[in-house]
Amino acid sequence: MSDFPSGKSESSSVLVTLMPIMAAVLVGFVIIGVALPVLPLHVHDDLGFDTFVVGLVAGAQFAASLVSRIWAGSYSDRRGAKQGVVTGLIGAVAAGLLYLLSLMLVNMPVLSVAILLTGRAVLGGAESFIITGAVAWGLGLVDREHAGKVIAWAGTAMFASMALGGPVGTVLYTSTGFISIALTTALLPLIVLLYIARMPAVAPHQHGEHSSLATVMRAVWWPGLGAALASIGYCAILAFSSLFYTEMHWHPVWMAFTAFGLALMLARTVAGHLPDRFGGARVALVFVVIQVAGMVLMWLARTSLIASFGAALAGFGYSLVYPGLGVEAVSATTPKNRGLAMGIYTAFLDIAMAIGSPGLGWIGGHIGLRAVFLFGAMVVACTAAVVCRLLFTGERS
């Protein structure tokens, strides 16, 4: 049995092992984040298209991500998780080159936007391979009892890079136009490819050792459902907090999302080990209660300070619900299927975001934006029932 100091040393060793993989995730999502705030400006102002085409170009990436999740997971299992990350980074470079090609044809807007749309779809597929391969790679490099750290830290790198990418992309676009976004998308993944080239790979499992898609889906279904329900709260704050603040005349309008993100990253940094130590489902049950409390506080808030505190509380709670349930998903499958399991598990988040945004928007339009956070809290609370089922079946097995 190891004492506490050696446990701290082991945790530091895990962090050092995972750093290059987290760098790949960071870059993979920075190049997504830099484009998000400026794509509408480029498509609308530079190419002259309406909001429908803007939405089409922006949404192509997320649709491609969802479609490619299972493929990315299966590929990582059969060809190796490192190869999955490498494939994703190469895909990101290709997306950047397509961005550049679209810029060469701005005098033919229809052809230019078609190529840009293709680049967005390629980037969506690349994102699936990067995040799914990175988690599977990390799980293969460290002991199984550190699965929660791998999932939590990968998510933290993803979240931080999306937050960083927005302001960086805005500065780049304002300074030099969309060409700087295209060059960033093409060049950053090349740098990471050189960085991870010497990292040890995890040998893929041979054919005949893999469970069927249906078998892995059954194993991941309940943790995935719980994660999807909890993610509706994240969706509510991401999509509607700025509109709510604007309606209430609170400033700055981005404060709720910033508070959510900072609390989430802080919690994962200081408490990311808890799912490994106490069990993913137990930790998820505690933290989902915190998340619900934060959402309810946002619904009740009459000042921006209280609303922002509620958002921070929700972020703190959500921080370990997703990795906690991710530990349950990984534990329910064999190591040779970890890539497919994480691909399916991540797809639940994609589906939640795809359904949650319009659903919450309908509620906000008919009942009011404040009701979005109450409804979000009610959906998130359903996660507790899923977690209780996981705990009950786990104790019986």
Score class of each variant (00 low, 15 high):
7 G>R: 11
7 G>H: 10
16 V>R: 14
19 M>H: 02
24 A>Q: 04
24 A>T: 07
27 V>I: 15
38 V>K: 12
55 G>T: 12
72 A>F: 04
86 V>G: 03
87 T>M: 15
88 G>D: 05
89 L>Q: 00
90 I>S: 08
96 G>R: 02
103 L>G: 14
108 M>E: 13
109 P>F: 06
115 I>S: 02
115 I>Y: 04
116 L>S: 01
124 G>S: 01
124 G>L: 00
136 A>K: 03
160 A>L: 14
160 A>G: 11
162 M>R: 04
165 G>W: 05
168 V>M: 15
168 V>Q: 09
169 G>H: 06
171 V>G: 09
172 L>T: 05
182 A>Q: 12
187 L>K: 07
208 G>V: 13
210 H>A: 06
221 W>N: 09
228 A>M: 14
229 L>Q: 04
232 I>T: 14
234 Y>F: 15
251 H>E: 14
253 V>D: 09
257 F>R: 04
260 F>W: 11
261 G>V: 14
268 R>C: 03
269 T>Q: 06
283 V>P: 10
291 Q>L: 07
296 V>Y: 04
298 M>F: 07
301 A>H: 00
303 T>K: 08
303 T>M: 08
306 I>S: 12
310 G>L: 06
318 Y>N: 10
322 Y>P: 03
331 S>W: 05
334 T>M: 09
337 N>T: 12
346 T>E: 09
350 D>P: 07
360 L>K: 01
362 W>E: 11
368 G>P: 02
380 V>K: 05
380 V>A: 15
387 V>S: 02
393 T>W: 11
395 E>V: 08
